[in-house]
C-alpha cells in the first residue's frame, strides 16, 4: 500500500520516463492533456506502466475520467485499498 505522496512520486517518474517532463511538473491539479500535453498514446503507456508499478487494474473505460494527475492518484489509491 502506497501513500498518496508515494503514488504521486511514482506517477511523476512514469510520466518523466514517457515524456521527458520534469517530475516536479507533475502536480495534483495538472491536466494530463491540457497542462502536460500528453497525447492518447502516451496516456495509455502511462496507464499500463502505472498498473504494473502499483499492481492495480485501470479499466480502459476509466481512463477517460482521469483528467488530472490528482484523479489518477485517487483512483490508484482507491484501487489499492
Amino acid at each position: 500500500m502506497a501513500s498518496n505522496e508515494e503514488i504521486l512520486a511514482g506517477l511523476a517518474e512514469i510520466v518523466n520516463e514517457e515524456t521527458g517532463l520534469a517530475p516536479e511538473a507533475v502536480e495534483l491539479d495538472k491536466s494530463f492533456t491540457d497542462d502536460l500535453d500528453i497525447d492518447s498514446i502516451s496516456m495509455m503507456t502511462i496507464v499500463v506502466n502505472a498498473e504494473e508499478k502499483f499492481d492495480v487494474k485501470i479499466p480502459d473505460e476509466e481512463v477517460k475520467n482521469l483528467k488530472t494527475v490528482g484523479d489518477a492518484v485517487s483512483f490508484i489509491a482507491g484501487a489499492q485499498a
Binding site: 492518447s40 498514446i41 495509455m44 503507456t45 499500463v48 498498473e51 504494473e52
Partner: peptide, 8 residues
C-alpha cells in the same frame, strides 16, 4: 499478457 503490449 496483452495489457503490457504498449500502444506505440
Amino acid at each position: 499478457g496483452p495489457r503490457r503490449v504498449l500502444p506505440m
